[in-house]
Design a protein around this nucleic acid. Sequence first.
DNA 1: CAGACTCCCGGAAACGTTTACAGCAGACAG
DNA 2: CTGTCTGCTGTAAACGTTTCCGGGAGTCTG
Lengths: 359, 359
Amino acid sequence: MGRKRLQESADGRPTVHTVAARAGVSIASASRVLNGVGGSPETIRKVREAAAEVGYVPNAIGRSLQSQRTGLVALAVEDIGNPVYVEMMRAIESVVAASGRQLLVHATGGQIANETALLRRLAHRYVDGMIVSPIRVTDDHLAALVDSPVPVVVVGQLGADAPVDNVRTDSRTGVGLAVGHLVAAGRRRIGFVNGPLDTVPGAARDAGFRAALAAHGIDLDERLVEVGDFRYAAGRAATERLLARARPDALVCANDLIAVGALHALLAAGHRVPQDVALVGMDDTELARMMFPQLSSVSLGSAERGRRAAELLLQRIADPTLPPRREQVAPSLAVRASSATGPATGVTLPAPRTPEVTA
Amino acid sequence: MGRKRLQESADGRPTVHTVAARAGVSIASASRVLNGVGGSPETIRKVREAAAEVGYVPNAIGRSLQSQRTGLVALAVEDIGNPVYVEMMRAIESVVAASGRQLLVHATGGQIANETALLRRLAHRYVDGMIVSPIRVTDDHLAALVDSPVPVVVVGQLGADAPVDNVRTDSRTGVGLAVGHLVAAGRRRIGFVNGPLDTVPGAARDAGFRAALAAHGIDLDERLVEVGDFRYAAGRAATERLLARARPDALVCANDLIAVGALHALLAAGHRVPQDVALVGMDDTELARMMFPQLSSVSLGSAERGRRAAELLLQRIADPTLPPRREQVAPSLAVRASSATGPATGVTLPAPRTPEVTA
DNA sequence: CAGACTCCCGGAAACGTTTACAGCAGACAG
DNA sequence: CTGTCTGCTGTAAACGTTTCCGGGAGTCTG
């Protein structure tokens, strides 16, 4: 039989050829029946039967090659352990699922190389589009975004003129909300525990903090500013360093994970929250409500940003010629016990290491 | 020109044909150069140049159709907001990445239909293999697992004779560790806040709890058992219901999210932890260490299970004929402040709603 | 009863890639 | 100078699917 086409795939699984041969019809008819378009009752019966007998299951790759779409959408975030991304993911998922597609998540670990590689590899047609939330953006990175072979939507700040769909918030203003709230509550020695300054959100929040203090006529004591990364352990360690050299009456944290670390450090050092030190986080994730006392937090609308990003992406997939769009979500402040003014809701410690504890 | 093959893909992006034509060589030579195998210096130069000029980027789908592999591995979990899955994912990711593949995560939301659909759709060749951690297993589900077209490894309990690679732990014994520890510390009115009983882990933990109490000769007071789901809010609500009708001196929780909910409920109700009520969670996630007081927790070796599952999967991808294997990871108990015996490490509340507070 | 119309079918092309195979030129040995 | 070997190249098949197109059979209309 020479090099005649075989009827099974390389690993022995049935293909549409197997089904067609078994049903005694052409592959065209088999394919039509399997896709539910056309076919006489008799043909339908024969093909269905044959497919069931051999346990046919279509090969998505073959189908995608033909149809030029996979029905998959990817979300690439830095740290999937950060609840803010979980909330964003849930919002994206619901939009994406409603369009009949599936969402896949990839954690980049904040490695630029990693993320660029993802764009350059995964995006090469395995997915119909992707949403990326980078915390560092380099020129190389940007280039990869711009000429990505599939539609990309970026969640987060991006160079002003980048021709890429973009959903952002204003975290500078967000930090301002926190500072304003604390100042109004009579706090003056306001500290700031931030993430790395070489990240986009880190830099924006630093600028926002300084601007907000200035706007309230408060001189910034640099000893009240500390930097770690955006995770819990670093937040706790950074707060411990800060407390070792300064005595804040309030702390703003660049996200909720850091705020939880700060809360832990404060309580372990014998400070009462909020009586001695008021605490405000950012992102307003479920984590903030899981703490005791519950944490005030600046909402950056992560779910909303995710939802909008997903919508932008679906629109662009439908029509790739759309001009780049940019949307903005306004921040808001959720005040909870950790920065409430009254002392009634606070937590006290018996009397651990530090001297200045109320008897 | 009739129906002659075009040199661009449908959406105008360059293909290997474009590059070949531009370089004045055959597509075979172009492909060889682009893959770094063979080619004369002159050919290499021309092809590289042409590829750069047109911005060629290979179509992964086309390549996969030919090579019968995608280099992608999927992880399907129920709730990506649960830190235990984050830890598992990290472990899997590192193994998978080391093999040069990429990990994609899919959240099923615990919907069986969802999960089965994932198996039946995504698994149809988009990925080289997948790791699934189902919390409910039906026959249909099992069938989908067994004749999945790609290798599958299951993390979690599975019917004893299911011919599927499987990494499990022994959560019954795990609950026993928690109960034993609490009994040794003198606790007797030990409560249990569990997830749904129609889930595999929920059922196993319930059985483990009852068996452990019996083993210590303690009669179970059914009012001390409450059920929600595996998330924070439900854990808190369930604990509130429990506290409204009973007075435990210790609580075992079916996972750390529930334990955090229980901690919140306990503190809000004015109970001291651990003095009044000792608390033990399960999964030993980072969340347990993020609490104040830090939570004792039964480690079910989630990272280890993830690591082993990934290794099993890679082995099976390499050799699909391997017999089904089953591995087990032993639980262990991490004792922290929330169940420490001494009162020194506990947290006290000023004097909220309940009367029995230390002045 | 002829013609138009509808419906179904099979052959073949197409999606973008890799690769087996054969041909060809050049280098080298005898 | 001839024969063999090496290394590169191009043609074409293959991966598994969908779909265009032409042909044939059957149905309805006039």
